[in-house]
C-alpha cells in the first residue's frame, strides 16, 4: 500500500496482489465463523435457540445491512472520483457500525437472561456474537483509518485500494452476520 511513487500500471498490478491477499485472509477467517456455526448446530441442533429479543435482533440486522449498503456507496463514489460522496457515505457506515456494536454488546448482552457461564447455549451465544462484534470493531477501526487517510487526500479514483479493502472487509462482517442471525435468533425455540 506504500505505493505513491508507483506508476498506474504497477499500482494496478500490486492492487491485484493485495486484493488476492485480502480475499485469502477472508477465506481463512471464514473458517473460524464456520467452526462456531457448526458447533452451535452440533450441540443444539435446529430445535433450540437462546431466548433473545426478536426486535433487537431485527434492528441490529437491519443496521448492519444498511451499513453495508452505505459502505458500498462510499466505495463506488471513490471509484468515480466523488470524494465528497465517499466521506458522507463512509461516515454513515461508521456510525451504523458503532450503532450495531451498541445494539449487540450494549443492549442484547445486557438484557440477556443468562451469563456466558450458564450453559453451553449461552456460551455459544456470547462467543458467536463476541467474535463477530470484535470483527465489527476492527472493521470500524479500519474504516476510520482509511477515512482519515482519505481526508489527507491520499486516494484517487485510480488509486484507492485501501478504500476497497475496508469496504470488502466490512461486507465480510455483514456476510458472517447473515448466517449468525438465523442461527442465533430465528432457528428453533428457547428451551422451556
Amino acid at each position: 500500500m506504500s505505493t505513491g511513487t508507483l506508476s498506474i500500471a504497477d499500482y494496478h498490478k500490486k492492487t491485484v496482489t493485495n486484493r488476492l491477499g485480502l480475499w485469502l485472509f477472508i477465506v481463512s477467517d471464514a473458517f473460524v465463523f464456520a467452526g462456531l456455526f457448526i458447533a452451535r448446530f452440533y450441540l443444539y441442533g435446529a430445535g433450540v435457540r437462546p431466548e433473545l429479543s426478536q426486535i433487537v435482533g431485527l434492528i441490529v440486522t437491519s443496521i448492519l445491512v444498511l451499513s453495508s449498503f452505505f459502505a458500498n456507496r462510499g466505495e463506488v463514489s471513490m471509484a468515480y472520483g466523488d470524494t465528497k460522496g465517499y466521506f458522507r457515505n463512509t461516515l454513515i457506515t461508521i456510525i451504523l457500525g458503532i450503532a450495531f456494536l451498541i445494539g449487540v454488546v450494549g443492549v442484547e448482552w445486557q438484557i440477556a437472561p443468562y451469563g456466558p457461564d450458564h450453559d453451553a447455549l449461552w456460551s455459544l451465544f456470547y462467543t458467536m456474537t463476541g467474535f463477530h462484534a470484535f470483527h465489527v470493531l476492527t472493521g470500524v477501526i479500519f474504516l476510520v483509518i482509511v477515512y482519515r487517510n482519505a481526508r489527507k487526500g491520499l486516494y484517487t479514483a485510480e488509486r484507492h485500494f485501501p478504500v476497497e479493502a475496508a469496504a470488502v472487509y466490512w461486507h465480510f462482517v455483514d456476510v458472517v452476520w447473515v448466517f449468525f442471525y438465523p442461527a442465533l435468533y430465528l432457528i428453533g425455540l428457547p428451551p422451556i
Binding site: 435446529a46 430445535g47 435457540r49 426478536q54 431485527l58 442471525y181 438465523p182 435468533y185 430465528l186 432457528i187 428453533g188 425455540l189
Partner: peptide
Amino acid sequence: EYFIGLFAPY
C-alpha cells in the same frame, strides 16, 4: 426471515 423465525422457527 424474520417472519419465518416468528411463525415457523423449525
